[in-house]
Design a protein around this nucleic acid. Structure first.
Lengths: 248, 248
DNA sequence: CGCAGACTTGACCGCGCTCAATGCGAGTGG
DNA sequence: CCACTCGCATTGAGCGCGGTCAAGTCTGCG
């Protein structure tokens, strides 16, 4: 996957941002309507992946970022002792790979959690187009800047917060990200396994389980497997509020 | 400090990157010799700050990034419960404020740990110049990309590593950053208090103290107050290696 | 129906936090 | 010069959160 996906798909479709339902979350918001065409010229609408596949692998040549169109992805790195470390989850409208622009190797692997389709953004083309479209350049600086902040927030979350606070934060983060897509902020299906949640939050799976049943006992959530309903958002916010704020 | 520093220094000096001893670590590496002048045109050589002052404060208007010329700085945010959370340390040749480009408010405050001078990089000018100098634009994307990775590394460090691993990692990070500046990688003065270290690493001060005396007992380091000597780099690396790698 | 993987629940224990006291060096003033 | 203070660092005692280990339960799928 280091090569642009086009390789395996000689007839890779040009993206059609115009008709994409995510255009208000994704790159197009950064460019005037008249310039969307130029964006479409460099973006390749990639193929779909199914559960378990990887969009790219750690330390492959990094030539592209990817915008998630549908589905869900987890990124993770393996440390030298062979353990996986989940570094993030990416949902539709979000862009992954921004951490891999610097040393031209992907810093992490991107695992597909459920049937997913992505748009491929070749980095060199993006840089080139950014020079011509100031608003696009600005948007990218902003995107990366927010990404730094999200990582910092996450580090802060891991540094001093209890298991309950971490889990409440994650649930609320997911909630607001679903809401942005006009989906229910209180009733959704977790795209990732408990294991991934635990790993991402620096906890043991057992702890995640325990906390979620505790939350359920307190009437804060209703959980059956990956089906989640948030019953008391304000209480969850109260718990999570020990740290700053969630993904905007 | 939200205003460019020039306000308080009407005669703010144009930067002289040409003669700066850090030019091989800092922005100039990104531009050809002939373009350094254009860089100097937009960079303001700021004034010096002394211990305890702030270069900028959280939630002030963010108009500039800052390159550290000399000294040392810690960045931190206060969460809503009023506690400080140290998010990073910045040494000469490093650029801070990259996390604050997105929503035009500083995401953190920058506290001066020892007598420090900085160069101010107005964001709007940087974006403009980046459009004209592709290598500068690329460099900035790279910088921000690495910053994302550093935060992720830090998050990983906090998520599963023991106190010893965290502290060994920090010591090695500092070591390599001193080395980059042609200073001794094994003998240096910590610019920050134990308190800041503890906060940054998500530990209690007492734990930092205990671990450092333990390291000393094992002959790994020699510490007297903030004077540190790393006696056994490989052993420290062995300890830290549970996670990935330090600041390049 | 049976198996494998994901999730839950329980019992136990250790790392690191908390609280509290003490040590130490720098700066200040008598 | 000492006495005093203040901030910072170190050291000790006790305990709780969350990790580990080990069963047990649920679920989807061939």
């Amino acid at each position: 996957m280091g090569q642009p996906i086009a390789r395996s798909h000689p007839s890779a479709l040009k993206a059609s941002c115009h008709s994409c339902s995510l255009s208000e979350l994704c790159l197009p918001i950064a460019v005037g309507a008249s310039d969307i065409d130029r964006l479409e010229d460099i973006i390749q609408q990639g193929r779909s992946f199914s559960r378990g596949e990887t969009v790219f692998k750690q330390s492959e040549r990094a030539r592209s970022c990817f915008a998630v169109r549908s589905g869900a992805i987890k990124t993770s790195v393996v440390n030298h002792s062979g353990e996986e470390q989940v570094t993030g989850f990416f949902l539709p409208g979000e862009i992954m790979g921004l951490d891999s622009i610097s040393d031209d190797r992907y810093a992490c692997s991107a695992f597909v959690l459920e049937r997913t389709s992505v748009c491929e953004l070749p980095i060199s083309h993006l840089e080139e187009l950014s020079r011509k479209l100031p608003s696009l350049q600005h948007h990218f600086f902003s995107l990366m800047s927010s990404e730094i902040r999200h990582s910092q927030q996450h580090a802060m979350l891991l540094s001093r917060n209890t298991a309950e606070e971490r889990i409440a934060s994650l649930l609320l983060s997911l909630s607001s990200r679903f809401e942005r897509r006009k989906l229910s902020p209180t009733r959704f299906t977790l795209p990732m396994a408990r294991n991934d949640i635990a790993n991402f939050l620096g906890l043991a799976v057992e702890t995640v389980s325990r906390v979620m049943t505790r939350f359920q006992g307190q009437g804060l959530i209703q959980a059956k497997g990956r089906e989640i309903e948030l019953l008391d958002l304000t209480a969850l916010q109260e718990i999570a509020l020990t740290f700053a704020r969630c993904r905007p």
